[in-house]
Design a protein around this nucleic acid. Structure first.
Lengths: 202, 202
DNA sequence: CGCGATTTTGACCCTATTCAAAGTCAGTGG
DNA sequence: CCACTGACTTTGAATAGGGTCAAAATCGCG
């Protein structure tokens, strides 16, 4: 969805500190958010206490478009700046502006598709492939990668978060990074900073 | 979404034989479907060939509400009867009827939420708990369970399908069923027919 | 400099997979 | 009605991949 369409709506700026909860699954939803700076994680908690991170949201991305209640929880991975739009206003926009309604619905659709493939990958890929796949997608995130090849990636989240996203433990993740280093697929350029050599230009 | 709202739209009946593909991920979408009889599976294929079943659809449920392209593939698990509605008509309905638009969007939202919890469960539950969880949800499906307690469930899909949904192998699934039988949590009442004793009334 | 959070390492274990083969079922045609 | 066939399910033995537990090392930050 274009920012321009939303700009006409009432909106305000929100700053949230690292680690803070933005909303919780099941609570009534009133606002749609756009990430301006930082990184947000969407997650659900299991009855057993194990949490599953569903996705990370980066600048320019929208999240929280729920009509009735929140379908996941949202937390600030880093200090974040968000723009908040009242859901009611977004709905009105949709009623008036066919194109905007389309784009919003398409956002939801794309979310299903991404989640479906995430489930597929997390279920069928070995740990190292999962991590490479994650790095590959992160490298395309302007706020994380540097756009060059091979890309340098600065992870905004902890290993714990990455592990909860890829369905691994932090220990395994650490071992996988070492193994990727040993096999020359990545190398480290600082703490949580990786150069993905395997993505070097052909 | 109420059937009544859709009934005003142009629609037609479709019969599809067991195993046939209804649509494929990525192809342009033109119709929304409602299951009238039988069972449909939604799935995505991995680059490695491993397929992940995302959900099973039963009578009265809608699927295929994609604006642009299909976000998953859909296949008939059994012979199925579907009602098809042109997406364009559904969109118009949404433009005129606020309430209908709401319900459709909520459908998409609920899909994300269900998928998220499925990912959580499949990632963190041991095999036996995953299977019990699956049976428990199936028992609430009028077309599958009998509504009584303890419920009798007739699986419309093969072990292979259940396994692809729960992220197990058919072999493991078979062993889990045996183990659940041994521990008195279920017993069999025919091929693919289970009585879930663990769900007996308190 | 010191603290708490995060990351790393090691040893061991466990669950589900793999591979292989036999058994069972439903539907088909004789 | 029965034999046949192909798909599905079951079983067994061996294995691997990631998890667990525990502890040490490191980092970021006040």
């Amino acid at each position: 969805m274009k920012k321009s369409a939303l700009e006409a709506l009432p909106h305000w700026r929100v700053s949230i500190a690292k680690g803070r909860t933005i909303y919780i699954e099941g609570e009534p939803s009133s606002t749609l958010y756009r990430v301006e700076r930082g990184c947000v994680r969407l997650l659900v908690d299991g009855t057993d206490g194990a949490r599953q991170i569903i996705s990370f949201q980066f600048p320019t991305q929208l999240f929280g478009y729920c009509l009735d209640t929140r379908n996941t929880s949202a937390e600030a991975v880093t200090d974040v700046e968000l723009t908040a739009y009242p859901i009611s206003a977004v709905i009105e926009l949709g009623a008036q502006n066919q194109k905007a309604a389309f784009e919003l619905l398409d956002t939801a659709n794309a979310a299903v598709q991404r989640l479906a493939h995430h489930l597929q990958g997390v279920s069928h890929l070995p740990a190292d492939a999962r991590v490479m796949w994650f790095l590959e997608r992160l490298s395309r995130e302007p706020a994380v990668g540097d756009g060059r090849m091979p890309p340098t990636i600065r992870l905004p989240m902890t290993y714990g978060d990455v592990a909860a996203y890829l369905n691994l433990t932090p220990q395994t993740l650490s071992r996988v990074f070492r193994q990727l280093e040993d096999s020359q697929r990545i190398h480290r350029a600082g703490s949580r900073v990786f150069v993905v050599d395997a993505l070097a230009p052909a």
